[in-house]
Amino acid sequence: MTELSNSAQTPTLRRPFSVRTQPGFATIAMVCFFLLYAPLLPLVVYSFNSGTSIAFWEGFSFRWYVAAWDNEFVQDATIRSVVVATSASFTATCLATMAALGTTRTRPYRGLTAIYAMINQPLMVPEIVTAVALLILFATIKAVTNYHGLAYLIIAHTAFCIPFAYMPIRARLEGMDLSLETAAADLYATPWKTFRRVTLPLVWPGVLAGLMLAFVISLDDVVITEFVKSAGQDTLPTYMLGQLRRAITPEVHAISTVLLAVSVAMVTIFFFLNRKMQ
């Protein structure tokens, strides 16, 4: 009965509401994409400019890439950026994994919502406020210990990376069937073995996503780094910011283009890794 009446209906009547069919959808989408990607195009193009101008095209060359590569400030900043981003994203991902387990694999307890809010707090608090707060805190510690190393930057980056690493891991854990862990316990797996053999392999894509997100976020940070870094501790973004204050050359374009390529590569790798694991 129901099948008959269904097939008798014209398909257009049954089609669910879809934004795509609304008038103007295509135009708005095109405008959005344009705003997102159009500014990147001149950046990439002028990074290959053979002249010193960022407005007049004088021919194709890798000149600015070579210049950036040979610039020891850039080398220095790049190494520092990678060290900070790697340490911070690893530490943040470990902490975020534990936090995600603690908020999804326990009986609901009092204050759970407050804990969610606290973990996500760095997303809500203006970055400049965190930066000033860290500046003051670290200044005190620096005065007391006389230590001026990279640890401050790594700790600061770890702190603001945690919510970014936390989100995909928690999403993955919440999407996981709890009865799998029950089944593992039923099959003689101790809690640790259950975690190693069942929970971890299944949240792994979430952990990788969290790690990459944290890495990119750390690599990109300016505000907090600018406040927290000691003298001579430029990361790539703060170095570029410093350059802009002087004369802008296509060298900055070249560095930006490389950063862009790195993040596109990471997102792509992650996408394929994730697909393979499904």
Binding site: T182, A183, A184, D186, V198, L202
Partner: peptide
Amino acid sequence: NTVFQNYALFP
């Protein structure tokens, strides 16, 4: 040992 209603096989 238990046979679960939704089987709960390890994917």
